[in-house]
Design a binder for these strands. Structure first.
Lengths: 343, 343
DNA sequence: CTGAAAGCGCTTACAG
DNA sequence: CTGAAAGCGCTTACAG
């Protein structure tokens, strides 16, 4: 069922079959036609394993990974990196290798992108944190026909791009559903955007939109306050917020980023009662509060899997022209205390 | 880094290296020692791909799949089967193949098991529906040193066994958490076990236990009624149940199997109000009611993935002696209307 | 434009 | 007890 069989049936050498299969030139029209016919007839599909066995030693597949430096501040980014490492481990004997380029801000992002294009990578995995810079990266990759996958967040770019990320609108709607179940129609709702250095993150905006969308969809007029709080300053409870918090009804708090663990302390400090919290991401601090029943739901975006899937998807694209795994909508995983640990 | 290098360093032929690597006899103590030393020194790990490339044509890995016939009644079983097929597809070029044996009841289970042992399979994937029969299967597999994985449900067997399934206690606790969030301390709770031909299923019992456990853990004394309802008869609302349903409070209904879609109709018919439902499995009927807000939460046990993981796990065990994927605790996936479809 | 040969890392029969 | 050779399915120089 392999190229040998094709060669035999088409009365050519396996070298010629290989030329046809790879659309290399140097084959006469007639021979090519004959070979293609046989290929079709026997329903040939390439044995990727055998192919990679040879290529693993002569032509590695190299990926450039351009993601945030995972210090304490962006601890989160250890997870996609882990997933990437796992995928590489699985594919190592098939000749896959990665180089990590870890950025700190938009300028180091740019510098590293520059370095990446000096070498010949087969694909790039990155993160669309900086719109302008992402666009320029996308353009250059397109020009060099290097496939590129963006993780974590989907933003609009000038040209089609591949994303492996959770649908943040959807995540926001799910959060709406969950909080509404606990708080009901008579409560007050709060969307809490904790800003970081780069201001408000694209997917945090989308999460808030989705959250509000949910209440529109179920056609319930509830009060939703937005609180934007900068991580750099102290949290200041304004007079307006004191009014909101002072009410005796139930309160639903939707924290649009991974910092929901900052909330319980603050709420305690200001003696705000009857609150329910939905946040994002399974960092240790969040999980701690989930266990203490001070956070009610966490939404997981499977960061490790995102990294894993990116490498696998790119590998399948490069080796089998299979585009189907270049885009991925990560399910909105709902975590409560009871399903938070898989023993 | 391969056997060639080892052979060179140990001053033997690759044939001898191979003998040592596979613990085959016919190697002198001294040679073996020398070879093992080199193997250790260079930190050799087998290239599974290369190994399988050769073996794929001379010695296939064959799995016997012994699962329920997926007619309409057990439609669910199409899903693990699909996952199995996907894994086999991915591993086909490495020489993996499966035969399906589909049973209808305990006697056909036994007959098919008999047939399986007449052939030489490298592993078995099955389902522990029938305790006695599962034990005898496990025993025979043990005797022949054939690895075996049980899907879907964990039951106690006479001897250690591998399970890829969701922790049903945990799933029950999650259900408790979810319903409690909607219904609170003042409501009534109902556990609804819909019996089938085989009586009440092991994991349905465990789900009920987990559910009750949750309320013990949070130390809240709520009323939990158990309703056992046979699928074969009409649903009869007893006088006692009329009392329960007639109360004006909120009611939480936990359906321990995949038939939660039968409930909304019945509740409507008996004009039971203020009910919230948590059920299992993403069949079309359940999803339909989820979309209509008549079922509030569904718990998914990722049946397709269970099948997929079983094949992959067995493959990694057989080819790399890696036992780590033979047991798997499937996460308790919480599904609401908003995250039910991944577009 | 085409073919024959060597090789990827491992496995298997065969010869001695 | 040990080695040399052929082969898994594909790829790559090299020769003509």
């Amino acid at each position: 069922m392999g190229i040998k069989k094709i060669a035999e049936l088409a009365n050519v050498s396996i070298g010629t079959v290989d030329r046809v299969l790879h659309n290399r030139k140097g084959v006469s029209k007639e021979t090519e036609k004959r070979v293609r016919k046989v290929i079709k007839e026997i329903g040939y599909t390439k044995n990727t394993t055998a192919s990679r066995l040879k290529l693993a030693s002569v032509k590695k597949i190299k990926f450039a990974i351009l993601i945030p430096e995972a210090e304490n501040k962006w601890n989160y980014w250890k997870l996609p990196k882990k997933g990437i490492e796992q995928a590489v481990q699985e594919l190592r004997e098939l000749g896959v290798a990665v180089d990590n380029y870890l950025f700190l801000d938009s300028s180091s992002f740019n510098n590293l992108a520059e370095q990446i294009f000096l070498k010949d990578y087969d694909a790039i995995v990155t993160v669309p944190f900086f719109k302008k810079e992402s666009n320029s990266l996308l353009k250059r990759a397109e020009g060099k026909k290097i496939p590129i996958i963006f993780l974590d967040t989907e933003i609009e770019l000038e040209g089609p791009a591949c994303f492996i990320r959770q649908d943040s609108h959807k995540a926001g709607r799910v959060a709406g559903r969950l909080l509404h179940g606990l708080v009901g129609a008579k409560g007050d709702y709060f969307v809490i955007n904790m800003l970081n250095d780069r201001g408000i993150h694209a997917n945090n905006i989308q999460r808030e939109q989705g959250f509000r969308e949910f209440f529109n969809t179920i056609n319930e007029k509830v009060t939703i306050h937005t609180i934007n709080y900068s991580l750099n300053d102290e949290f200041k409870v304004t007079a307006e917020m004191e009014d909101w918090f002072g009410k005796d009804n139930l309160k639903g708090m939707f924290v649009t980023n991974s910092k929901s663990h900052l909330l319980p302390k603050i709420l305690e400090q200001y003696q705000v009662k009857n609150t329910f919290i939905v946040g994002f991401d399974l960092n240790n601090q969040n999980l701690e509060y989930l266990k203490e029943d001070k956070i009610n739901f966490l939404i997981n975006q499977q960061p490790k899997y995102q990294g894993y899937a990116a490498i696998k998807g790119l590998f399948n694209f490069i080796t089998k022209q299979d585009r189907s795994e270049l885009n991925l909508d990560i399910p909105v995983e709902i975590i409560v205390k009871e399903n938070s640990a898989t023993l």
